[in-house]
C-alpha cells in the first residue's frame, strides 16, 4: 500500500509531532520507500507461526508492591522546563 500526504498528516497528529507543510512531500517519499522495503515480509506465509513477544526464556519478574523510593520531589522537579516549587507547569488547560 502507499501512504499519501493526508495519511501522513494524520499519523503525525497521532504522534503529536507537527509537520511543516513544506516537508510533507519529502517525508511521503521517504516513508513510502521504507514501507516498500518493509513489505517484503508479505512474501512469507506466517499463518501458523506464533508471534514472538519475549526473547528471554524467563517471564518478567515482578517485585513486591512496597515503597522503595520517594521524597525526592526537588530532584524530580530539577529538570523541568518550567517550574514552581511543587508542580510541573503546563499551558493552561481549563478555563
Amino acid at each position: 500500500m502507499s501512504l499519501d500526504k493526508e495519511k501522513i498528516k494524520h499519523v503525525a497528529k497521532l504522534a503529536r509531532i507537527s509537520v511543516d507543510e513544506a516537508k510533507v512531500e519529502s517525508l511521503t517519499k521517504d516513508l513510502n520507500s521504507i514501507f516498500k522495503f518493509i513489505e517484503q515480509l508479505n512474501e512469507l506465509n506466517t499463518d501458523k507461526v506464533e508471534p514472538l513477544t519475549s526473547i528471554l526464556n524467563q517471564s518478567l519478574r515482578s517485585r513486591k508492591d512496597d515503597i522503595s523510593d520517594g521524597k525526592i520531589r526537588e530532584k524530580i522537579l530539577k529538570n523541568s522546563p518550567k517550574e514552581n516549587e511543587e508542580f510541573f507547569v503546563v499551558p493552561k488547560v481549563v478555563e
Partner: peptide, 14 residues
C-alpha cells in the same frame, strides 16, 4: 498487517 506480522517473522528468525 505490520507489527504482528513482524513478531511472527521474528520468531522464524530466532
Amino acid at each position: 498487517a505490520y507489527y504482528l506480522k513482524a513478531q511472527k517473522v521474528r520468531q522464524l528468525i530466532k
